[in-house]
Amino acid sequence: MKFEWKGVMPAVTTKFTNEDTLDLDLFQVNIKAQLEAGVHGIVLGGTLGEASTLTEAEKRTLTQETVKMVNGKVPVLINIAEQSTKGAIAAAHHAEEDGASGLMMLPPMRYKASDEETVEYFKAVATNTSLPIMVYNNPVDYKIEVTQAMFDELLKCDNIEAVKESTRDISNVTRIKNNFGDRLKIMCGVDTLALESLLMGADGWIAGLVCAFPAETVAIYELQKAGRIQEAIEIYRWFLPLLELDINPKLVQNIKLAEVATGIGSETVRAPRLRLSGKEREEVLKIINDGVKSRPQLPDYKNL
């Protein structure tokens, strides 16, 4: 399936059983909820997907099973977060074999590559796959920034098509539009800047709290796209305390706890992560419960 870089694409959590194996039955419950809400794609194996704890076999199983679950309704994208260029190329080949429609790519992991090394890393993968690529630009968490000058070089590769913009600098949306027009599609990667980014011209939203609140997330996107900005703002204001759970070192535990509250997930995480406990858990639960109790009534956003 051809990837269209637009709309809401959940960076889904990976579901585990109490025996620490993939819980594909519960995973399907969540994917079904996302599809019913009208999401525009599925992103696997990102930070929220606990990618660093997944084996190669588990990543391949997730890709293959998700492709079956969505059954052509939306594209499926798999994240590549590898330590070597060789490993990243192999992961891209596996993604193609397993039916993925596109790739989200982080810079090299662990090693703080130079600008030149980072560019060559992305280009090596791009020239070894036919899949479209979205560069995940998150210098806050991953310590490497993909600059505008680096994108000048990267965009010589036709299949590098988008950026997951997570620099936390909202003005970068305008810089990218000024420098690259529609050649580089922009997907906001920070929940707490999503509506602002969309209003400034971002094409879509790689979302986190959508894992627990899919309808509200898609409604914000569709409303702003239809020009019903005030309605989008009202939902976004309700959503913000929940969205702030995404910009936290324990975003995985936070969002999985929210999935429990909305009936489409479990708290189970993979070690070394542990479930939230004590005062921290109480504080997060209060935010979640307050949000659930005050969920807004949504307009018919699917038919705008």
Rank of each mutant, 00 (worst) to 15 (best):
L103E: 11
S171C: 15
L223M: 12
Q224D: 08
L298M: 01
E161V: 13
Q34H: 10
M1R: 03
H93G: 01
A113G: 13
V190C: 00
K86M: 00
E282R: 01
R270I: 06
Q230E: 12
E259R: 06
A126W: 09
L48G: 14
T17M: 00
D25G: 07
I31K: 07
T47Y: 11
N30P: 06
D158N: 09
K2G: 15
M69P: 06
I176R: 06
A207K: 00
G72N: 15
F180D: 05
R295G: 04
A37N: 02
Y221V: 10
E82A: 07
G181L: 06
A95V: 04
I89E: 07
F180V: 07
K256L: 09
Q253T: 14
L198E: 07
E280D: 05
I233Q: 14
K15L: 10
L257T: 03
K164M: 05
A92P: 07
E222H: 01
M105H: 04
L195C: 04
N138V: 15
A91Q: 10
A149V: 13
K112E: 06
G102W: 03
G7W: 01
D98Q: 08
E65K: 02
T61D: 07
S84G: 03
I176V: 12
R275I: 13
A95M: 07
S277V: 02
T129A: 15
G72Y: 13
E82L: 05
Q148F: 12
A57N: 03
T268M: 00
I220D: 12
L54S: 01
A100P: 15
G102A: 00
E145L: 01
D23S: 00
V163S: 10
M134T: 04
I186S: 04
C157R: 08
M69R: 07
E117P: 02
S52I: 10
K59M: 11
R110L: 15
N179M: 12
D25H: 06
N303M: 12
K143T: 10
V135I: 09
V76Q: 12
P75M: 03
E244T: 11
D246C: 10
I78R: 08
K59P: 05
E161P: 08
D152T: 08
T147V: 14
K73Q: 10
G102I: 03
L26G: 11
F27I: 09
E145P: 04
K156Y: 10
E196L: 15
A215V: 13
E4D: 15
V163G: 13
E165D: 09
Q83G: 09
I220H: 11
R228L: 11
E283W: 09
